[in-house]
């Protein structure tokens, strides 16, 4: 695993220019207020009503009678991002769709969580090699929980949601990034542009350089 960890950090394979919060590694003392606050949040994570592909069907199945996510306070699917706490990226993220997803994310109020459901959302999945597929939503949004599987069964989804709850438990008002003062809003993700290919505006300089190099080589 060591090797892969190192590669993962490799000059921003994921999340260029994005500070991955260390809140999982360094758990500081959790005060009573935190506990109360987290208890409230963990049982009312409202997902954004938002489905992309096959995984979305399993997400819907998880909301129905047999699995009943309402037991976790997650049944209130909000069609508007303004009222949602969690974006469940359920399916293949295509380049064409990506700007809409980013716009939705930017409109969500904090605290907000992103869960990558299924192989596609985690890293492109079986369609990774496709020309219209984004190799993982984590290239653009900070993903909190990855749920492998294609599709994850509703039970696997619920297991992933419990993982998210655990993460929420460990957060502290003082430490979480959206209350930290003095920093610019690191959560804002600039909108990518659909050009000849997908343009991630944060990486413009890099593209220019690589395109120039290619031209030189050609």
């Amino acid at each position: 695993m060591e090797e892969h960890k190192e590669e993962n950090k490799y000059e921003g394979l994921n999340l260029p220019n994005y500070n991955i919060p260390e809140d999982i590694q360094n758990v500081v003392s959790i005060t009573t207020i935190d506990r109360l606050y987290n208890w409230g949040r963990r049982w009312s994570v409202w997902p954004l009503m938002f489905g992309l592909a096959c995984c979305a069907i399993e997400m819907i199945a998880a909301q129905t009678a047999r699995y009943d996510m309402a037991r976790f306070g997650m049944e209130v699917m909000r069609p508007t991002p303004r009222q949602a706490d969690m974006m469940l990226v359920s399916g293949t993220v295509t380049k064409k769709m990506l700007p809409s997803i980013i716009r939705l994310y930017n409109q969500m109020p904090e605290p907000k969580y992103v869960v990558a459901m299924g192989a596609c959302a985690s890293s492109g999945g079986p369609f990774k090699e496709g020309y219209n597929v984004v190799a993982g939503i984590d290239k653009f949004l900070p993903v909190d929980v990855y749920i492998p599987g294609c599709p994850p069964t509703p039970q696997a989804l619920i297991a992933g949601m419990m993982k998210l709850q655990e993460k929420i438990d460990k957060q502290s008002i003082k430490k979480v990034r959206w209350y930290e003062k003095g920093k610019n809003d690191s959560n804002y993700v600039p909108m990518p542009i659909l050009g000849p290919d997908l343009i991630d505006v944060r990486r413009n300089a890099e593209y220019k350089e690589a395109a120039a190099k290619k031209e030189g080589a050609a």
Partner: peptide, 16 residues
């Protein structure tokens, strides 16, 4: 086993 959600990407090596 399906409850394998994690906080990171999942590349399993021999050991895992």
């Amino acid at each position: 086993e399906f409850a394998i959600a994690s906080y990171d990407r999942n590349v399993y090596n021999l050991e895992k």
